[in-house]
Amino acid sequence: MGEKDSTAKQPHSEESESTPLDSKMNRRTFLKASTISAGVIGLGGIALSTGNSTTVVQNPTENLPATSNSDPFASQTVTLNINGKSYEVSVEPRDMLNNVLRDDLGLIGTKRPCNRGECGGCTVLIDGVAYMSCTYPAYRAAGHSITTVEGYNVPSSTESQILNALQLAWVQEDGGQCSGCQPGQIMSATALLLSNPNPTLDEIKAGMSGNLCRCGNYDGIIASIQLAAQNLQGGSA
């Protein structure tokens, strides 16, 4: 039971109250925290880095060389190219791309419904191909082009153009109810339209068969994809 403060404070106060226990965080946590506070992402969801520049986050206490097999358990610093921007982050071997996107970079548009590779809700594109980020090792994503559901306004990117067409179609055709699975659905749909701009119903089902929707909104999803495909075909491209 916390001691009652005599001054009236809003429970939502921004006051921080670190205790010795909380400040006793381990080194890895500190590294991760420093990655965030160095301004890669504002946690309100606004990207602070722009263009294709690399945001280099220096660890003030030590540099961890990514040499192979010297300390197999060591974290390594990797560069991730996400939605056209570069991020350097420190990752443990066991860090999945999903943990890094969400917990370290604040890119929470990529969801984590099952964290077991069983629902597709965490789907991202890596070099245009759909993967479940919860079972994709983060270190392996280094140097590859990653697109998340936040990547809808990347200049001169076909992926981005398809992605946003889908997102707009999702509004028109009511593609989601609770919408928890929908970022993953839309990333799978983006991969589908990238390789097949005008899919048949059967091809849509095949392409979307790795994404569960607990609301059962599959008819809305199908209609949304069909509308986006139609809009992209008839569009200026």
């Binding site: 192979s68 097999n69 300390d71 197999p72 358990f73 443990e92 071997p93 066991r94 999945m96 943990n99 099952c114 964290n115 077991r116 270190y139």
Partner: peptide, 10 residues
Amino acid sequence: NEVPKFGLLT
């Protein structure tokens, strides 16, 4: 559902 610590060998 997190992965326990492991050493990565390449």
